[in-house]
């Protein structure tokens, strides 16, 4: 953090703080630590509780006094798998992975083009991309629904892939562009002097340098696609339904069995939670579309 250097003259001139300093400092740090941990735990508690409940028997889940000690069981997870979560997980994974790949395939070239100043009116293009993100999804859902219906593409994972790509592409373009912009111009010039072709400039210099940024972008796309609910609810029913839809169906068909629900919910959240935790450093950047480093 800050360097200790400026503190030393103060120590010699004001011995009072030098004596009381360490203790006060310790107390301050201790209370600060306690406060921060408390805040962290309060926010984390619902998630923790969900995971705990997933390992309970229903009798332990439905209690007026919460059971913190209980004998854990995997039977809820087993029940969830028995109820046919498999295809839903597969649909979610398919929609998420393929739409993310498609976003990168479309977004990387676009962001590259927009990071070069020679593209006139880049602002207009960027403006367009981001404005699509600002328009409420509901404004286009009716024609999309009708078009999809008329094309016979209702309840089709392909439809979700296309829509998730459109949903994430603007964010991805902004984000990727900010990564491309960070590649120093002189490095590209050095490469040009070294003799790269345009193609080599992109594949051997640009892409390797922005690889971590591409990974971060992919992560953000994965989070948003995996968690998406509105399209999935309205455009799928059985064959192509994803995890959030499964949860809704599970809730209505199984009634409110909390432990089983918690197990299903835990499974639904786990991939994104893990991915987000692993890449937390990139998360801010992604969430702010590259504006915040």
């Amino acid at each position: 953090m800050t360097t200790a250097a400026p503190a030393s003259p103060a120590d010699t001139t004001t011995p009072r703080t030098a004596v009381r300093g360490p203790l006060r400092h310790l107390l301050r740090t201790a209370s600060w630590t306690a406060g921060a941990w408390l805040a962290g735990l309060v926010f984390f508690f619902p998630v923790l509780w969900m995971v705990l409940t997933a390992f309970k028997q229903e009798s332990d889940a439905y209690t007026t006094t919460p059971h913190i000690v209980f004998s854990p069981t995997l039977s809820q997870f087993k029940a969830v798998f028995d109820s046919g979560i498999g295809p839903y997980l597969a649909n979610s994974a398919l929609a998420t992975v393929l739409s993310t790949i498609l976003v990168l395939a479309l977004g990387i070239p676009a962001a590259y083009a927009l990071s070069i100043r020679s593209v006139r009116k880049w602002r207009d293009a960027l403006f367009f991309f981001i404005s699509t993100k600002m328009l409420p999804v509901v404004a286009a859902i009716i024609p999309i629904y009708l078009a999809v219906r008329d094309l016979g593409a209702l309840d089709n994972v392909g439809t979700l892939i296309v829509l998730y790509t459109a949903m994430n592409l603007p964010i991805a373009v902004w984000m990727l562009r900010s990564f491309f912009l960070e590649v120093p111009r002189e490095v590209l010039e050095a490469a040009r002097v070294d003799g790269v072709t345009l193609r080599q400039e992109i594949t051997r210099i640009m892409l390797p340098i922005v690889a971590p940024g591409i990974a971060a972008t992919a992560l953000i796309c994965v989070i948003f696609s995996w968690n998406e609910f509105f399209f999935a609810l309205n455009l799928t029913s059985v064959r192509a339904a994803t995890m959030p839809v499964f949860l809704v169906g599970f809730m209505t068909s199984e009634g409110l069995y909390w432990a089983k629900l918690a197990a299903a919910a835990t499974l639904a959240c786990l991939p994104v939670l893990l991915a987000g935790w692993i890449a937390q450093k990139q998360l801010v950047r992604g969430l702010s579309m590259g504006a915040v480093k």
Partner: peptide, 27 residues
């Protein structure tokens, strides 16, 4: 630039961050 048979040293050095020293020099 690549047809000029020149080599340039930049103010910021402009080294390729993803390559080792040897790869930088041999690129």
């Amino acid at each position: 630039p690549k047809e000029r048979d020149i080599a340039m040293v930049f103010q910021s050095y402009a080294l390729y961050p993803h390559m080792t020293v040897a790869q930088n020099m041999g690129f």
